[in-house]
Structure formats: C-alpha cells, structure tokens
Design a binder for these strands. Structure first.
Lengths: 185, 185
DNA sequence: CCGAGCATGTAACACGTTACATGATTGC
DNA sequence: GCAATCATGTAACGTGTTACATGCTCGG
C-alpha cells in the first residue's frame, strides 16, 4: 500500500460514521482526526470521484442544489475494513524543532530556549484540545467512544511527554555557558 | 520557508560538523539524525549542486578518483545560521496507527491490540537506540554534546510516552466486548 | 444586495522517494 | 576476479498542498 490508500482510509472512514458532502468530509477530518491526520480538498475530491467510479461510495444528489451527499456502499465498507488491515507504512520522520536544536551550538542557549518554549506552548495547547475532545466524546456517548478515546489518550501522552522534555531541556539550557558572557555566578 | 530549505539545513548542518562526500552526508543524516530526520539521495545531490552554484559549499576534488569532498564556505555557514533562525513550518500530522485505531470498531479489540503491540515494540526498539546514542555521544565528548543529547532526550521521552500509552491502551482493549462473544464473566 | 460560509473541482507547483545507470575502489 | 561498498547523478513517479475558478444559499 502506497500512501494513496491512507487518504482513502480517511475518506471512507469519515463516511462510515455518517453520510456527508465532500466539504463536510474535509471538516470532519480536520476537526475530529485533526491531531493525527490531515487531508486537503485537492486530495478529497479526486478520491471521492475515484471511489464513486469503483462503486465504493454513491452520490445522493439533492436536486442540483447545494451539493450532494456521499454514502458508503457495502463494497465501500469492505474496502475500508480491508485497508484498515493492511500494514502501516511508517512516515519518514521530520521534526524541524529537533533539527534546529541539534545544531543549537550555532544558535546559542537563548535562541534554543525560545524554540523549546514554543514547542512547550504548542504541546500545552494540544493538551487542552485533548481534554475538550475527551469531554465531547464522553458526552456524545457514541458506540465507538472507546476507540476514539484511545486516540485522544495518545495525544495526551505525547503532549505531556513533550512538556516534560521541554522543562528538562530548558533547565539544561539554563546551565549552559553563554557565548561571550564572562562569568555571572 | 517552504520545505526545500529544511533539506538545506540538514545538508549544510552535516557539513558543518565536518567536510564529507554526498554519500557520507546521506549516511550521517541517516545515522545521526535518523530518529527525527531523513533525506534521500534524490534530494541530497541536487541540493549540493545548488549550494555549490550559490557558493555555500565547495567541492575539493581528489584527482578524479573516489568522489569529492564538500566543505562549508563562510557564506554557507552564515546561510545555515540564517536558516536555523527561520520559523519552523509544522509538518501536517499523519499517524497511520492512530488512523486505524480511530476506526477500531470495524476491526475489533484483538486486531487493535496487535496494532498497539506493534507500536509498543517499535517504541521499545527506539528507546534502545536512544540509550546507545546517548552513550556514544558522551563517549565521543564533542563540544556540541549537550545539544545532541537534547535531541536524544526528546526521543526517549517520546518513546517512553508511547510505551505507557500502549500499556494503558492494551488494558482498555482487554476490557472491551469481543464481537460475537456471548458473556464470559 | 452582499458577505460569509457551503460546495465542487482543477491546474500548477513543490516535495520526496525509488529505481535505475554508471563507474571506482577495496577486501577477500 | 568478484562482491560489497563507495560515489554521483537523473528520470519517473506518486503524493500533497495551494491557489484559483465557479457557483449556490442564507442570514442580515
């Protein structure tokens, strides 16, 4: 499985929750899968067209007005389950924050501390989002709530780890010699 | 800054440690930055050519035999520092494991447990790699050791968080009802 | 009536990997 | 001599985002 089918999973998956328009698929992915997945219109519409051709989704046109609603067919559901079973292609790692910190000797402790603080702030926001998401899922009481909460928990663990790392790192940076500074303590 | 310059950071950064061939740049990125960065030959060689044209690196040809060694010029060093200062473009999230678990209701607890176990195993391997990396860096005693260790620490925190999440999740999955199973307790 | 949001789609571009072609060097 | 590794490069392909074009609907 190349990456294309990953987009297919996201689209079919969104439609498996309930039928909706392509525009709504995008919104659902952004809002609900936002912390671990993303798709753009440029991917979603061609994918929907292809899935329609292949008979995995059908388009319920409402007059001609106001777009159409895509619905998963039985074959689409099978396809989704099959794709979910396929091995997971690991994405090549690309962490811009760590790339910069690795060469932190060229930046100095203060600039590095700013970078780490930004990462910490970002994680903090994420943690807040996760708390809200958790509450929303529990409140809605969907049948798949347990699985949805698993992904929320992953976000929380990751965010907390990043905050702990940031705090530890800021402490390390504070003890590092500042270039051009004579002594101080 | 688009993404191109991120590749430029990695290449210039590798050469900032010491002059080397393009082939060695690739090896250095894979081995040393491997847990948070990756580049392929198809990116590295064109980037080196461009950097040479722009005067950021020079090629010390050794006869004609056995390739050449690329060395950072003063302008290349400035360029690297400038790039390191630029804002970090957040990569769109794409976590195949969480994508599958979110739709775990279609897979059932057992298959999900396999996926989570695979993620746990992967994190465990990563943790081992980090421990080795830490030892190697300390042993080498490079001047930038402190910065390199910061990135190792990030890997350790992330790996430990993933293991903790996996253990918690496996417990959750164990308590979940198995489809088709009548009662049990 | 007008702006905001809903809705669909495509074309251009950027990015990155993979596979291939090619050849030198080195150790066995 | 042969295989493995070092070394450089490119072409093809897949994937993904961004920006644009277009039009509807609905609330104020």
């Amino acid at each position: 499985m190349s990456r294309q089918s990953q987009t297919e999973i996201a689209v079919l998956g969104a439609l498996s929750v309930e039928p909706m328009s392509g525009y709504a698929v995008r919104a659902a992915i952004t809002e609900t899968l936002g912390h671990f997945w993303s798709e753009s219109f440029g991917q979603i519409y061609p994918t929907l067209s292809r899935l329609e051709t292949e008979g995995h989704v059908v388009r319920d046109a409402v007059g001609q007005t106001s777009g159409s609603t895509f619905r998963l067919t039985r074959s689409g559901r099978s396809r989704l389950v099959a794709l979910l079973h396929e091995p997971i292609a690991a994405a090549p790692p690309r962490n811009g924050t760590l790339l910069r910190l690795f060469f932190g000797g060229l930046l100095g402790p203060d600039t590095c501390a700013e970078i780490v603080t930004a990462a910490r702030d970002h994680a903090l926001v994420l943690l807040g989002t996760m708390t809200e998401a958790r509450a929303a899922i529990v409140a809605e009481g969907r049948p798949d709530a347990a699985y949805w909460l698993i992904t929320v928990s992953a976000g929380e663990h990751a965010a907390k780890a990043q905050i702990a790392w940031a705090d530890e790192t800021l402490e390390v940076l504070r003890r590092l010699p500042h270039r051009g500074l004579r002594s101080g303590s």
